[in-house]
Write a protein that binds this DNA or RNA. Structure first.
Lengths: 194, 194, 194, 194
DNA sequence: AATGAATGAGATTTCATTCAT
DNA sequence: AATGAATGAAATCTCATTCAT
């Protein structure tokens, strides 16, 4: 299993740095190899092709994130609390690795449609997690019974994503994590006064 | 003024079709020219370079959209109504031109950072419009006084954008415009029961 | 006869200016037309193609130069005097029209081999004139009977040409005409002390 | 160091042949690569761009020529002898490589001004060598004390260059090297009888 | 005679991937 | 397992020339 060898992760981390520092289109395989301290050809002992590096990158980072979130949400009782924690942890994860934030929010979006479809495939685990929280909220009577779950999930993900992207485009100048409560409140209660 | 000559728009429309059908990276200038029914060189009588076609495309389409929205919102009295109309019209615009929807939601995002920065410049007019609706809602007492306007705007735009993108990725199989009321309601009132 | 219409010369003079100011490869037909104050297409009513402009340019300028030199040399009695006058007038002609100097010494040399062969054709009248002076010098006993006329002509032309080119490359900073006597003396007597 | 790898010289020699046989503008990188027996891309492992091939070509050929001449002149005692050897070796070098003669005398002159400025930079070493011979001649009393060194150098270089160019344009039909003594004599003693 | 919009051929360079060592 | 030199396909843009008006 390539996944367990040190160079596998070495190359993925090098890709994150190379892409964050040079931009998607300027992060040639040669640059990633140099950053990883291996020869160009070595890359191909661990990855099928360049696209495979990027998908693996996303899988590794997002996969461990989904696992972490699941643990965090495990003991919590209300859907509202879970939603807030989800937003908070999403923001925290990207705040902690600023290179990764640039890569996922800006650079990887420049990849072609095909790659983005595969990335969406990876995202499904995360979206499922959101779906579960929403379903639980409806079942427990916390959320409106009439809630369109698919739309609600798109609202959650769209809001989180746009918030993070804006933060990255503003060069990560402010504290992203501090925004989580406000975002959570808006998702739960909307803009209107009651 | 190039902008008033018929070939200018002819080429922009050809670009939308060529990009939607072939994908961003496979929409070579030669293909756009062929689709427009002009010679390759003719493109360069109307546009500085390929990037200029794409920026102009975005400006023309988004520019006229912002104008149209402004007219639609003009006579309306409540911020809530304006917000709903905004979502509705955004969905309607892209429902009406499915090629354009593919181009803006999927293909144009593959452009390099520089082009995307210029596109963001164009978007500012639209974001300003959203800001105005939000400000009005707060001033009139419709929306919470504590509302973080920047975050609220990101929530609106992020939700709309994610909803449209999901619809496009699902090959536009359902009626996007029909979703507007539900989206509007979620933005105004959130998920929680009252 | 095109040659007698005003636009013919207007275009040639525009070509000299356009080439001197923009360089050979940046002097597009469109620029020459603009400089001449005519439409691009008009050029082709007076010249077969772009090359034809350049050959005509050379013919007009060099043709009138050969005529002028012939008049100047007409009354003179010694070959030595004629040689000096030839150098002097060559230097003077290019000193008087600095645009023309740049064009003939630097820019026109970038033309392709074919054009340069045609330019050499035009030069033949001038080279013949040099040959005549040399022949006269030998016949009259002024110059060595053993003189290789062809080589001597190459020495004269090569020396003049290199001297002018160096002057142009030094941005015409010094008085070229003033160098004529020294050049004449070196051609007649060489470097060696007697 | 690229300069020491065999492919570096292989490509330069291929460029000489390709340019001599096809002409400057028809010697595309693809043709040079084919002539060198390498892939197009390989060229760019050894040269920054096409211009870099041409500059390097000139540097290699002229550089080794200057070195060779310096060795040849080393033991000689009179400036006159040195001058003759210089002409002789210059003629010999180009006689020995007829492709190179075509390239330096005809084809490379079509390059743009920028490239020619760089070529002139390379030429400076050679011109310096001529200057040294002239200075020595004056100091030793062989040459006139009144000699304008700059002009004399232009006469030497101009004469050699014009002689070689004429020979190349005449398709190298006669023995160029045989002309060296006559050229040397004309430079030293001029045309006039004594 | 004059215009100028339209044409379309053609070449440099990059970079993911391979494979002999 | 690791290397890195070599490969070669592919696309933007320029500009001399034409021709309908």
């Amino acid at each position: 299993m390539k996944r367990n060898k040190p160079k596998y992760h070495q190359i993925i981390d090098a890709a994150v740095v190379a892409i964050a520092e040079n931009g998607y289109h300027q992060a040639q395989v040669a640059k990633i190899a140099k950053q990883a301290g291996v020869a160009d050809g070595t890359i191909y002992l661990y990855f099928k092709n360049k696209e495979d590096i990027l998908i693996s990158l996303f899988q590794e980072k997002m996969g461990s994130f989904v696992e972490k979130i699941q643990q965090v949400l495990a003991g919590k009782t209300t859907a509202a609390e879970k939603l807030l924690l989800l937003v908070e942890n999403h923001f925290a994860m990207l705040s902690e690795d600023r290179h990764l934030a640039v890569v996922t929010q800006l650079e990887l979006r420049q990849s072609n449609k095909e790659l983005r479809l595969k990335i969406n495939e990876v995202l499904k685990g995360y979206l499922q997690l959101i779906d579960d929280v929403l379903k639980e909220g409806v079942e427990k009577g916390e959320f409106k019974a009439s809630l369109n779950l698919l739309l609600a999930r798109q609202m959650i993900f769209g809001t989180i994503d746009e918030t993070v992207t804006t933060w990255v485009m503003n060069e990560q100048k402010y504290d992203l994590t501090a925004l989580a409560p406000e975002v959570g409140d808006m998702l739960l209660n909307g803009f209107s006064i009651r």
